[in-house]
């Protein structure tokens, strides 16, 4: 009993990097990363929509891989590199963001940060994905507005753009 009580008294401190900055955040270990980002850090580019991992609005990069922040708990982030949509454009627009702008890969924009994060994760991993790979990588990101036409075009343009910029 006394051991347990002592344990509880040491509050969990999450140490991780968010958009390149080291952070120490006091939060219960089971706090969802989505809550930490939006409510504690005011990084509201990461969106809340279904909270069960089905829509991708809350997507962030953890060590470069796209992850639903609504399903990720604070303790799982310890020591990790977290990148949110805000971090992608820290040094000017990412070519993927530019491609979404030019092709009209968004309308209301609510799915867009998550969508762009998923594209980033895909293209960093596979610079020349085929159609199946794109569909697979983005099928966890729901967009209700565009019907995905503009998103297909934006991804295509991003692939070409990255080739060109490299």
């Amino acid at each position: 009993m006394s051991d347990k009580a002592a344990e509880v008294q040491v509050p969990f401190q999450l140490q991780c990097s968010v958009n390149g900055e080291l952070k120490t955040i006091a939060a219960p270990p089971s706090t969802r990363l989505l809550t930490i980002l939006r409510d504690e850090m005011e990084l509201t580019g990461t969106k809340r929509s279904c909270e069960i991992g089905r829509c991708g609005a809350c997507m962030v990069l953890i060590d470069g891989r796209a992850v639903n922040s609504c399903l990720t708990m604070a303790y799982q982030c310890a020591g990790k590199q977290i990148t949110t949509i805000e971090g992608l454009s820290a040094n000017g627009l990412d070519p993927i963001q530019q491609a979404f702008l030019e092709e009209g890969g968004f309308q209301c924009g609510y799915c867009t940060p998550g969508m762009i994060v998923s594209v980033k994760s895909l293209l960093d991993d596979k610079p020349n994905p085929n159609v199946d790979e794109v569909a697979e990588a983005l099928s966890g990101n729901i967009c209700r507005c565009t019907g995905y036409g503009g998103i297909w075009r934006a991804v295509q343009r991003a692939i070409e753009g990255r080739r060109y910029w490299k």
């Binding site: 580019g45 805000e86 992608l88 963001q97 702008l101 968004f106 924009g109 762009i116």
Partner: peptide, 11 residues
Amino acid sequence: GPAKVTGELTY
């Protein structure tokens, strides 16, 4: 657009 693709837009 720019505020939407960067996540800067405050809904």
